[in-house]
Amino acid sequence: MRVAMLLLLAAFWLAGPASAEVQEVYDFDTRAEEQRYQQLISELRCPKCQNQNIADSNAPISKDMRDQVYRMMRQGASNEEIVDDLVARFGEFVQYKPPVDKRTIVLWAFPAIAAIGGFLVVAGVLWRARRRNEQDSALSDDEKRRAERILKDQGGSSDR
């Protein structure tokens, strides 16, 4: 039993170096840190390039910026601190996620404004149309039939 255990251990030990994980280009203690780093560098823009984040760009400045992100992460800086540091050097241009402030509130709120506004308009159209329906439904029957017939003649077939 003991021999078997030892053999097993030896096997693991021998297998160890062969399957040992390689180093990251930047070394992190945990997978979560590595992901946080990847996330950060994918959201920062290379100031020299056409339109690339510093993760994808090969420009020297991108490497400097990656180094700085890594250095600050090792020192325990938060995401905001890191982004703020780079913004202080290179300007707001380097963050792909625009800050929420007076200038950009319209931008950030836009999907909600547009969708809710649109839904309200649809609701309004429906409501008004229905009221009009109630008002003159009496004289409409004949007209309705005629309208439908015209529509049919023009090719509005009622299959799908």
Partner: peptide, 11 residues
């Protein structure tokens, strides 16, 4: 003249 912003993937 309110600044140069980048609006990208995260947004």
């Amino acid at each position: 003249e309110l600044g140069k912003l980048s609006i990208g993937e995260p947004f």
